[in-house]
Design a binder for these strands. Sequence first.
DNA 1: CGTTCATTCAACCAACTGGTTGAACACGAA
DNA 2: TTCGTGTTCAACCAGTTGGTTGAATGAACG
Lengths: 132, 132
Amino acid sequence: MTTADRLSDVFAALADPIRRDMVATLAEADATVTELAEPHDVTVQAISKHLKVLEEAGLVSRTRDAQRRPAHLEADVFGLLTTWLERHRRLAEERYRRLDAVLASMPDDPSSTPLAERATTTHDHPDDRTTP
Amino acid sequence: MTTADRLSDVFAALADPIRRDMVATLAEADATVTELAEPHDVTVQAISKHLKVLEEAGLVSRTRDAQRRPAHLEADVFGLLTTWLERHRRLAEERYRRLDAVLASMPDDPSSTPLAERATTTHDHPDDRTTP
DNA sequence: CGTTCATTCAACCAACTGGTTGAACACGAA
DNA sequence: TTCGTGTTCAACCAGTTGGTTGAATGAACG
């Protein structure tokens, strides 16, 4: 699976409030399906499905303890998110700095569009790679 | 709208590879719908819809320039994500440290379950608040 | 004016999601 | 073996999503 696909799965998994709540709970301690279900007024089966989504996104792993199957938060995946986030936050910041510079070095030239200036520039930006 | 809802919208918006790509492009420069559509082989209407999703998630704002409506990346929202991410990464780390401590101060006591130890502890954790 | 370009609206469709109920499976205990 | 508990599988349903085509709107330009 490509990094883009994994990112999609992780973001999608965290787009649901119940699932985010489950992650929050698991950040404090491993927990079973029934334990995770208790605070939410949906059936245990629904929680089981949610857990499967988290599992397939790589956010959670399962162990076995007799008939119980405790879930464990796989915190590594947060790194993936942080990387993506950092990259784009950084880009946006650089963009601001660049724009400020342009504005500063431009007294009043009417031939330059104020916003959306040269949008067709050098953006050959494939995105979603495992950091080049 | 509550913080949880906003988080859901942002995560959902970023769960789509095309939309992530659009964000990547916008991180470098503002761009119009047609410009954003060019690299992807879907119709301009589809991109317009994607842009609306990003807009409603607060990730993008629109300006007007004659018949064009350039999109601008609203980088502030990244802060919301970073906050959530940091909080849970931090929790997970603390959990590891705590667990290590427990394991260290426990020579070999058979009455303690190895993993999933006391899952029914103090987790009154409402989650998704605007940082208390 | 009519044309052309950029964008959006509207209706439609297939696929996916989040939920349900009911049945099945997997263990440990009696 | 039977019973109870925890978990999952299967089928189903309503609502959402991501895409399409076709028509409508908005603004510059001849």
